[in-house]
């Protein structure tokens, strides 16, 4: 007696194969839908904003009149902000990563720091804004300055940079360190001359991606009370300033329809800024990938 009826199996096989095909198309459509959203989003913003992109737009300050509104102060402000965030977050992030990967012993303290970092990565950005408002703006009396915002944003992206740097450092083979120690190099010499040079591409890629997140971030700056419309350029790190996302936020909120076009134009500039940063990161990643 046979337990399996072959004709029955064959009959069912047909419907099973059909289900496979149907679902495959469903999965494909879902993927296509996700990609389509990106296309629609970009197309929509470009068609809305492209008309407002001209020299005046880059050269004007914010204004009550849409046709006079420009992003000069916001663009310069974003660049200034980066100049604070980049060194602060990279030094702190890479330092922490070196400590965790090269010096820290495997004990409770180390795993506590590690757990703390991964939890910090999940804290909403707006909560970092509350931290910055209390600590940097009020306690350290930095006011609504570039420095206060820069420190807040540095802490926000710190976990991302730490994790990226840790991965890059971990990828340097143990044999490289042994070779250096074997020559009588000290630990710090080994780190600065062997480990870090090999880890730099990974660290840079991760850092640039993290920085591009900081450039697009809005919520913490709103909480810090960074002004939206400024008629002057910042003249130092303690100066007031505004940034691209804040400027866009302000335009997007306005009821006049023209301001939506201005906002879209601002978004184009912001996106170009980000795409440039991402391209640099990808170029570094491709150029230096896998050498061992």
């Amino acid at each position: 007696m046979k337990y399996i009826d072959n004709t029955d199996v064959m009959k069912r096989m047909k419907s099973r194969l059909k289900m496979n095909k149907v679902w495959k198309s469903i999965f494909l459509i879902a993927t296509g839908l996700a990609l389509l959203t990106l296309v629609i989003l970009l197309a929509r913003i470009i068609t809305q904003g492209a008309g407002y992109l001209n020299w005046d737009f880059f050269n004007n300050f914010g204004s009550r009149f849409p046709e006079k509104a420009g992003i000069k102060a916001a663009l310069i402000g974003s660049v200034y902000l980066m100049l604070v965030i980049a060194p602060v977050s990279i030094i702190l992030g890479v330092g922490t990563a070196i400590y965790l990967e090269e010096y820290a012993k495997k004990n409770k303290f180390t795993s506590f720091i590690q757990m703390n970092i991964s939890n910090l990565a999940g804290v909403p950005s707006i909560v970092f804004g509350l931290l910055g408002l209390t600590i940097f703006v009020r306690m350290f009396l930095l006011g609504k300055s570039i420095l206060a915002a820069g420190f807040t944003m540095s802490l926000l992206i710190l976990p991302v940079i730490i994790v990226a740097a840790q991965e890059a450092i971990r990828a340097v083979p143990k044999e490289q360190r042994e070779a250096s120690y074997g020559m009588g190099a000290t630990k710090w010499q080994t780190i600065t001359r062997v480990v870090l040079p090999a880890a730099v591409p990974g660290i840079l890629t991760g850092s640039i991606l993290a920085l591009s997140r900081a450039v697009g971030e809005t919520a913490p700056l709103v909480v810090l009370g960074i002004p939206v419309i400024l008629q002057f350029l910042p003249d130092g790190l303690l100066s007031q300033f505004t940034t691209l996302p804040l400027q866009i936020y302000d335009w997007a909120k306005r009821p006049q329809e023209e301001f939506q076009f201005v906002a879209a134009a601002g978004i184009i500039v912001l996106m170009i800024f980000l795409i440039l940063m991402n391209s640099i990161a990808i170029m570094i990643r491709n150029k230096f990938q896998k050498r061992y």
């Binding site: 083979p173 044999e175 490289q176 042994e178 070779a179 250096s180 074997g182 062997v194 040079p197 090999a198 050498r291 061992y292």
Partner: peptide, 10 residues
């Protein structure tokens, strides 16, 4: 010391 696997620096 010379190691098992050649380990020049990159």
């Amino acid at each position: 010391m010379v190691f098992q696997k050649p380990n020049p620096f990159p």
